[in-house]
Design a protein around this nucleic acid. Sequence first.
DNA 1: CACCATGTTCCTTG
DNA 2: CCAAGGAACATGGT
Length: 298
Amino acid sequence: MPELPEVEVLVRHLAPLLRNKTVRNVQVRRVKVLAPTSSRKFARTLRGARFVGLSRRGKYLVFEFRAQNQTRTQILVGHLGMTGRMYLLPAAARLPRHAAVVLGLGREKFIFEDTRYFGRLTLDASVLARLGPEPLAREFTAACFARALSRSTQPIKIKLLDQSLVAGVGNIYASEALFRARLAPTLPACRLSNDQVDRLRRAIREVLREAIDCGSTVPLNYSGAGKSGRLFYFGRAPGSPDFYEERLRVYGRAGQPCVNCGSPIKDMLQAARRTFYCSCCQRPRGARTGRKSGVKSV
DNA sequence: CACCATGTTCCTTG
DNA sequence: CCAAGGAACATGGT
């Protein structure tokens, strides 16, 4: 469920369901996902705790709770990794195969399920301090973005995945944002002009904002929504509008016509991650038609 | 069997 | 100390 918009939608969905619920019992089925918190400390801290709030930072979920007999609140940090999911089930329901942590809440139970166990649910909040600005907040300014980019010669696509640069962009929305900004994924980060930096900044915000809006209109019931991890990137939930599956303009569309110019979308590998782009709209020298200056002769 | 997948961290090298 | 590159983590789908 992994990038910022999916986490945001999940947080909005989960927040009212958890508010004021008390943890009656704690079941840890994969100690690994708690790291570096020990199983004992995790269970001891959460048993009897009451949820008071849930928010998001980058791709992380931040659960605020009040431990039993304590006045101050504490924080539980969640991350979905590649395949993680979090949801409530009736207390009597059978556990899914890869349930990593189960929190009994009375008549319901909170499930953290993760097929690959790359995700986290931990009392260690230190990761949050290393995150860059929230892309949808005021703090994500052109100036700070430009400064961060200027220090790197890496291709811009790879830089966008750096969570200390800006928090929450993942592999899918990195391709989407670059397409929207009409920037070549291979462009060295430090070579972007001020204008390009600002275009990219706006593109990131638009792409994430639209994805949140889109995901917010879809019921998060996890029941019928098909394959591919049941993420709202792919496919669509029954009854949801058609634009839902047309949301992604380049990601996963290799060979299909570009929605702008019709030339086939290409894909390549960058730092072992796939990148999708339009070689016509996202030219390294800018998206203009072929002229002498832009053509390399052999 | 081989390869691919929404993510992060650790290790090494320069 | 920092930037960059690559492997590792674990499982399932095609």
